[in-house]
Simulated assay, not measured.
Amino acid sequence: MDFKTFKEEVKENVRAHLPKEAKDVELSFGTYQKMNYSYEALFINIPEKNAQVSINLDELYEAYKDGQDLSKFYEIIPEIVESKEVDRAKEISFDYEQVKSHLFIRVDRVEGNENILENVPHCQMEDLALTYHVLLNKDGEGISKAMITNSWLEILGVTQEQLHQDALNNSQKLFPLSVMTITQAVMGGIDPTGVFASSQESLEEALKDEEIPLIVVTNKTKTDGAAALFYPEVMEQLGEKIGDFTILPSSTHETLILPDSEGMPIQHLKEMVAEVNGSFVEDADRLTDEVYHFDTKDRVFEKVDKFVARQKENSQKHVAEKGTEGIQKPKKSHEMSL
């Protein structure tokens, strides 16, 4: 069966498995765009709940070609249409006070997401973009979310600045920060969430036992955890403990921090990030191949190349200023004739 015929068959089967009270929903085909990837979708539009459910037809078609039985999928159509996520979307869609308590941020790469970013409020940090999402459900199987769009923001009647601040503050409540050494992360995810607190082993002490003192910054669920680095004062607090540091974008779920005191060559770090991204990170989870830096003195997050260039410029300026010290300006001479 070709893809076009398959799509129509799925549409008919979905319609047949809809619950009686949802028989009048609208079914349509289209492209569903998510950050970092898109897929051909069957949309289930539910006007009375002001909600839209999308079914990934590309994924279903691959399952069909692999010989998988799709009958089990059709059996859960009523659950999808009547899910907690759909009800939650209906409940909070127009009430910002309710939306605010479900807001959180996510960080993604700008490259490849330009079309989406045109239609959603976001904050760009170098070649990364912070976007704003509403948590619809969180359980042992993961999270369900909806991204705030420009049109949704207009309906809610708040500014992007207000949205940004509320999302930053609420992210920490929904997805608390988790900071650990690379060894702690590998050893089963030991989670010293209070690593900044005096009751926990200090970060400095934990790093002493590390051959390469890499620090993992994420959230407690380890989903969309790279955004935790941008929580208020996180970079500043890390800087107080380890000084200036380099940031390796491991994935959308976590970032790796390396103190500048290690003195690892920048080019080597960039090559390492590119290699890991190309070999181990799914494209949907990839941030960028760039390496970033946080300057504790100037409180600046930037690409590491920019930091190096800025330091070089400052150094040259300092040398130029030092070179003029001790040189006395010539005294003015006056000649008079009577």
Rank of each mutant, 00 (worst) to 15 (best):
S261A: 09
S251K: 03
D108K: 07
F94K: 11
Q316N: 14
D139T: 02
E290T: 04
S38M: 07
L153W: 05
T288P: 11
V273W: 05
S101Y: 02
K23D: 11
L42E: 12
A89R: 05
H334P: 01
L203F: 00
Y292F: 12
L42I: 14
A309L: 15
M187R: 04
Q184V: 00
K72F: 08
H17T: 02
E325V: 14
H318A: 15
M187F: 06
K312N: 13
S315A: 13
A206I: 01
V291Q: 09
D191S: 13
E12P: 02
Q124Y: 01
S38D: 12
K49N: 08
Q98W: 06
I116L: 13
K7F: 05
L156P: 12
K322N: 09
H133S: 15
Y96R: 08
A41W: 11
H133E: 14
E275L: 14
F29H: 11
N113W: 11
I155K: 09
D289R: 05
K20R: 15
K208H: 01
L156R: 08
L153F: 01
E161T: 10
M180K: 11
E75Y: 01
Y37F: 15
R15V: 02
I247S: 03
V300D: 10
F6K: 07
S202W: 02
V110P: 09
P232T: 12
E161R: 12
L60E: 04
N13I: 09
E210N: 01
F307K: 15
V291C: 07
F280D: 05
H102P: 00
A63D: 12
S337M: 10
D289H: 11
A274K: 14
P121F: 06
G278I: 07
K34C: 08
V99A: 06
Y231Q: 13
K100S: 04
E79G: 04
V234F: 14
E97D: 13
V291K: 07
K306T: 14
Q237V: 05
L238K: 12
L135G: 00
V25C: 03
S250A: 10
E201C: 08
D298V: 02
K138I: 07
E114W: 03
E240D: 02
S151E: 15
K241W: 08
Y96E: 07
H164V: 10
L57G: 13
Y132L: 06
G112C: 06
L136R: 00
Q237W: 11
